[in-house]
Amino acid sequence: MTSELLRLESVVKHFPAKGSLFYSETGTLSKGSVLQAVDGVSFTLEHNETLGIVGESGCGKSTLARTILYLNKPTSGKIYFEGQDLTNLSYGELAKIRPNMQMVFQDPYSSLDPRMRVKDIVAEPLRVVNKEKEVLNKRVREVTGQVGLEDYQLGRFPNEFSGGQRQRIAIARAIMTKPRLIILDEPTSAVDASIQAQILNLLRSIQEQYKMSYIFISHNVDVVRHMSNRIAVMYLGKFVEIGPTEEIVNSPRHPYAAALISSVPKPDPRARSEMIEIKGETPSPVNPPSGCRYHPRCPYATERCTLNEPTLDELETGHYIACHYPLKR
């Protein structure tokens, strides 16, 4: 790891919450309510590093991913990619940077156009910047070979492939432009159990080959652990803990991180009673709790937690925790 590729500074993404789609327990919303999908996220990502992001549905993981790629304009905050502040760039300047950032989505059944042939799907990201047929064809054959597709399959349509093979197509498309960063949003959760390891191994080997950085989003801590150098735990739009993989997995310090990690079932029938149960349900991101957002569910919460929001502080080298009373290791 040499230098910084990506830096986020207090990135916020709020959505207007109008109408009755997101209403709170107590009734309807007042006018001007906002859904705080991402609320003040800061981190840096090095070259060739993988940052894992774990969290439950609705915690803002996917919104964060879209915001980093600048598919959503952040409400506030700065995003630096290779030193350039994306929030200050014009549309044309952004278009020049975009080939360097790619994404692989969770569901390869909906992320591939059913009416395009594999070779056209894979070629598309490069076709935007380079229209020479020779170059495109050569590169398509190269990347599809790297992900394990055969030449005879290139003229086929997505529906002729299984879930695992479709995810290979999506990965080929992502590496077409030799990007510096790929965001992987639950890339194996729609893939069969006996295929998952193939896809994870493929992702690791092409990362080595291309020296790319990954942001790997998943709810499966075992998968994230295998893939990541560092892990961030997200709850209601905020990072509650971020640090080196083994520290986060083996001795999480934030009570939510500890409960989340313990909830992930292990393929071991002797490890049954170790789950820390979390009380209640995740609150709505429209009216998040005051102070620490986890306090209504936290067994260690005091009055201080209901009033003051903890900041993400570096308690050990490279290990940041947002908690007034972090767990002892």
Partner: peptide, 15 residues
């Protein structure tokens, strides 16, 4: 093939 038992730089035993 389930991740969790291998070391970081070891590939998974894919089927």
């Amino acid at each position: 093939s389930y991740p969790g038992r291998e070391s970081f730089n070891e590939p998974l035993k894919a089927i």
